[in-house]
Design a protein around this nucleic acid. Structure first.
Length: 222
DNA sequence: GCGACAG
DNA sequence: ATCTTGTCGC
C-alpha cells in the first residue's frame, strides 16, 4: 500500500514529505544489539555493496555480519541520499540472522533539509531506533566543539537544533550526529560516544565500511 | 542568478 | 562515493 522507495526525485520528495511526519526525534533506548550500516560502490558506480555489522552493546563484541550487492538505480542527490543507498542497506539488514534494536547509519538523521535524512528514513521504515553519523554537514551551522573527546556543539538549522558536532577523538575534526528515529539528541550523542574508541568514527560504522569495501574487493577480483 | 551540497 | 603514493606525525 505504501511506497517505500521512489523512482525519481519528484516521487522521492513526495515520499519524504510524508515520512517526516512519522519521525520521532526523542527517546533514550538501551540497546543490546546494534547494527552499523554503510555502503561502497563499484568503480563504474553501477553497483552498490551494502553492509550491516552487528555488535553487542555496550560491550561492542561483533556478533554478526551481512552484505548485499544491488544495482545503483537512483542518482546521488544531496537530500535524497536515502533513495540511493537505502535499498542496499535494508537488504543487508534483512540478511542478518538477528534484528538489531538500534541502527547506526552513515549519513544524517534529522540534520536534513526536510528533517528526513537516511537514518530517519530507515528508522521509520523499520520501526527501529536509529542515529545518523556523518563526516560533513549537509545543512545548518555548527559551532566548534571544545578540543577534548566528548565535547559537542549544536548544529542549528532554521532556528532549531537538528544535531551535534561531536569531538569523538581529541585532536580530530568532529563528526556530525543527529537523531534518526526514536532517539533524542542527548541519547544520540551519548550512544555514539559509547561506541567510539580510538578512532573518529564509531566502531559499528568502521566495521560496516570495511565489510562493504572487502565485499567489493571480492566481487571485483579476477 | 549564485553558491552549497550526507555518500 | 571513487580515482591514487608517498608521506608527515603520534
Amino acid at each position: 500500500m505504501h511506497p517505500i522507495w521512489a523512482d525519481d526525485p519528484a516521487e522521492a520528495l513526495a515520499l519524504q514529505a510524508r515520512l517526516r511526519r512519522r519521525v520521532v526525534a526523542r527517546g533514550a533506548p538501551a540497546p543490546a544489539l546494534v547494527a552499523g550500516l554503510d555502503a561502497a560502490y563499484s568503480r563504474d558506480g553501477a553497483t552498490i555493496y551494502g553492509a550491516a555489522v552487528l555488535f553487542l552493546f555496550p560491550g561492542l563484541e561483533q556478533v554478526g555480519e551481512a552484505w548485499t550487492e544491488c544495482e545503483a538505480r537512483f542518482p546521488y542527490i544531496p537530500g535524497l541520499f536515502a533513495f540511493r543507498e537505502g535499498p542496499a542497506l535494508c537488504a543487508a539488514l534483512e540478511a542478518l540472522d538477528r534484528t538489531p534494536d538500534l541502527i547506526l547509519v552513515h549519513g544524517h538523521g534529522i540534520a536534513h533539509p526536510r528533517r528526513c535524512g537516511i537514518a530517519s528514513h530507515l528508522g521509520v521504515l523499520l520501526g527501529t531506533p536509529s542515529i545518523g553519523v556523518a563526516d560533513l554537514l549537509l545543512v545548518g551551522e555548527a559551532g566548534e566543539p571544545r578540543g577534548e573527546r566528548g565535547a559537542a556543539a549544536p548544529v542549528r538549522f532554521e532556528g532549531e537544533v537538528v544535531g551535534w558536532a561531536v569531538r569523538t577523538r581529541t585532536g580530530a575534526r568532529p563528526i556530525y550526529v543527529s537523531p534518526g528515529h526514536l532517539v533524542g539528541h542527548a541519547a544520540a550523542v551519548e550512544l555514539v560516544l559509547a561506541m567510539t574508541g580510538n578512532y573518529r568514527r564509531p566502531e559499528p560504522l568502521r566495521a560496516a565500511h570495511r565489510c562493504a569495501v572487502s565485499v567489493r574487493a571480492g566481487k571485483t577480483k579476477r
